[in-house]
């Protein structure tokens, strides 16, 4: 299992890009941290979730 934003998700083996797309995120508006480190956007397709990973997806909305 992967913990994403505090919830257990069955996403082991999925890439960051696959998960974000399947969960409906706009890839232009997110920042993703994997086990406390930022995942550069260029690595979304090649970064694969492993069992026990902890992920934070921050999705920005407009306004400021």
């Amino acid at each position: 299992m992967v913990r994403i934003n505090g919830e257990k998700v069955d996403a082991v083996g999925k890439s960051v890009a696959e998960y974000l797309n399947s969960a409906g995120y706009d890839l232009m508006r997110v920042a993703v941290e994997l086990n406390g480190d930022i995942v550069p956007k260029a690595q979304y397709a090649d970064t694969i979730f492993k069992d026990g990973d902890s992920v934070e997806v921050v999705s920005f909305v407009g306004g400021g």
Partner: peptide, 27 residues
């Protein structure tokens, strides 16, 4: 929103020694 995500990604990737305090959702 895209500009917010871009600068946060940039600072965390390229300037990891700095702190970033961002904002999302205050309307």
């Amino acid at each position: 929103a895209e500009a917010k995500a871009n600068i946060v990604n940039f600072v965390l990737s390229e300037m990891p020694e700095k702190y970033i305090v961002a904002a999302s959702g205050m309307s």
